[in-house]
Design a protein around this nucleic acid. Structure first.
Lengths: 203, 203
DNA sequence: ATTCTAGTTGACCGCTCGGTAAAGTCAACC
DNA sequence: GGTTGACTTTACCGAGCGGTCAACTAGAAT
């Protein structure tokens, strides 16, 4: 990686962590620069605005989320319903870890930014919308597998169910963050199996 | 209402609308005062800080939400499952109305503030937590009715189901806000009946 | 009539905000 | 060796932030 790219990467990483642990508005470009050990002028060499930086942060966030959580959790070595169980465990462990490290359950970084910025910055809102779509496709894929495996009804609308899963997951994380309690994730997330309609499953 | 109380009320109303349509951080004390036609000094006569004002805004929000949406929707003139249908319709109409008026789906005012402020202001986080509890009790009540009426399983854990309903509702509103599309509410919210487990219900 | 106090006014504080501008550094390429 | 262009540095901008303060007004209580 060239020197310039390293600098840009430090800015992205600092911004991601600071914004996730606090909020978009509470973190200024000054603080991001200080944390990344970059001068302000350099910041504006790489990013046209704080908003543009945030869009790139969101992209990076999506890649990390898919590669380090979604793909491992939904890997096809297990039955679809077991994959969901694994996903729930990952999500729980992640929030637990965050609470230990920061003292706070941080919830979903995309959901956080979405609720804060959707009415104020159309670029950011659209970006989050496309991130949600990427996650949506991952869900559709597992749900189609579940259908093929006979774990859910043949007539199931997997595309709608994927949206439902996404919404429920975001909701659970929102409540967990509000109560600042990772156990909420462990307790509530398993109910998703009722939304999906896994056959012969007591949860 | 005394003159002072009227002033205070104007501040609360302005703050509520501005913060709901934008965000906590994006609305300053100055702007709230201007909108309410109150001088800044007066603001600090009534509220010790922006944070303290917000806690009172949240309390007002809760009362309005319960009285104008929750109680009417869950009034006992219908069967519990029909009450949920009515609630969904109210929620949908509300977001539709907001989109027409502001150009944006605004989602849940409490959820919005919760995600933005939970890690930054403990007073606000705790306040939202108690608001969620109030809503929680309303759900428990309907769910207990549903159990008594035989609409859901006798062994159902109504208290956990109430949490699940709250989380799902918040999640759906988050997705609707992100997509800026009220139809998401109409499409996804009915799936809540699967979470609750209403007997013999095709949704 | 006077005192008291709730409420109001508007100037002011230090600080940070997002963003700009211009000069300087350094390595790669011709 | 000179030029180019990516990158860095530093000083700076106007505006707004949350919050403070002291002087003022007016109505109620004594």
């Amino acid at each position: 990686m060239s020197k310039g790219q390293e600098t840009k990467q430090r800015l992205l990483d600092s911004a991601q962590e600071l914004m996730y642990s606090r909020s978009y508005s509470d973190v200024g470009v000054q603080e991001i620069c200080k944390d990344a050990k970059v001068q302000k002028g350099s910041f504006y060499h790489f990013f046209s605005s704080k908003s543009a930086l945030t869009v790139e942060v969101l992209e990076q966030l999506k890649m990390q989320m898919i590669e380090s959580i979604l793909l491992p959790a939904f890997a096809k070595d297990l039955t679809p319903s077991k994959r969901f169980e694994r996903f729930i465990e990952y999500a729980y462990q992640h929030q637990l870890h965050l609470k230990e490290e920061y003292g706070y359950v941080l919830g979903c970084p995309m959901g956080n930014i979405a609720l804060e910025m959707s009415t104020q910055d159309e670029e950011i809102r659209k970006k989050v919308e496309t991130l949600f779509e990427s996650i949506f496709y991952v869900f559709v894929d597992v749900l189609d597998d579940a259908k093929a495996a006979g774990e859910i009804d043949e007539a199931a609308n997997t595309s709608e169910l994927a949206q439902v899963c996404l919404a429920y997951g975001e909701g659970v994380l929102l409540v967990a963050k509000t109560k600042n309690d990772p156990e909420v994730v462990k307790q509530l997330l398993p109910h998703v199996s009722k939304l999906i309609g896994f056959k012969g499953l007591a949860d």
